[in-house]
Design a protein around this nucleic acid. Structure first.
Lengths: 157, 157
DNA sequence: CTGGGGCCTGAACCATGGTTCAAGTCAATG
DNA sequence: CATTGACTTGAACCATGGTTCAGGCCCCAG
């Protein structure tokens, strides 16, 4: 039960490079359980800690914010709640944005057009923030030319 | 109809700082219509171009990729499609991840626990990637202590 | 036709999140 | 008990996406 992991093993277990784990340690984010002859030794719990850190990154927390969260956990619960609330709003916003972007990309690969930038539906979506319906018909020459000019003008215009 | 915008007006219309627009120009991403006495003049279409650029960023394209997309639009349609397909998969992955993160944050503000890091549901979610059900009851002392140790060990353990 | 606010350029600077390197130490295997 | 591969450190370096600054020029309102 006193089986401690080396940094290489923690790295292998989490997929996080050892250089990154050391970098996080300098930022006081992941601290090794102990040292053995100068070498870091980790408990299996540290695998959890690394996973939590990556999740927080995925949620959009910067390393500085993650550090603050750790420090405020006991000391400043109200500040902590504000931090999380703000981040939640941020995550919601990015979800909407990403969802929109996904629709754009998805459509780009399915609509009649060889190239997304030729597609008038894309242009319309840009104008109204993605709330307008796509149209999947072939674009008129007018549409194409109009959009070509809007997106990437002919050199020397 | 020959009403051209200055960079300040384009900036105001799009919410993108003028310094950023100049930076993008150096990267060949947004090129002004023309110059008037050395000053950049933009058409209303450039508002569209800026919006497209921001959307592409939201989709996770780097500036280098956006530049590549522009260049390959006519020349390398197959490469272009691969780029977009890859990015779409990436967007899907990030959507799932963000959605998971949102659930974690949301739960953190609602569950009985003052602090998300005390919540055993959070720990479970970390373990299984968010597929396990939350539990909203008060945690047992055991749960709390167990999770405290997993997330942020007592100094000097 | 003059003043001033906006625009110009190039270069330096910034934050974030790491990675790489050199030179040295140490732990575990044969 | 020698080897060797993994580990150590601090410092330098990197990419991305900008921002800021100094010094100068130009457009336009009055």
């Amino acid at each position: 039960m006193t089986e401690l992991m080396t940094i290489g093993e923690l790295s292998a277990a989490t997929g996080v490079p050892d250089s990154t784990i050391r970098f996080w340690e300098r930022r006081d984010l992941i601290v090794p359980a102990t040292r053995r002859g100068g070498q870091r030794r980790y408990t299996p719990d540290d695998v959890q800690r690394v996973a939590v850190l990556r999740l927080c990154q995925a949620a959009g927390f910067t390393l500085a914010e993650i550090g603050r969260m750790k420090r405020e956990r006991h000391d400043e619960p109200f500040e902590w709640r504000r931090l999380v609330t703000d981040k939640l709003a941020d995550v919601q916003r990015r979800l909407t944005e990403l969802d929109h972007a996904r629709d754009l990309l998805h459509h780009a690969l399915r609509c009649g057009h060889e190239n997304i930038l030729h597609c008038p539906g894309f242009q319309a979506a840009v104008r109204d923030g993605g709330t307008s319906p796509w149209y999947d018909e072939e674009p008129s020459e007018d549409d194409v030319q109009q959009f070509d000019q809007a997106v990437d003008p002919v050199p020397g215009r």
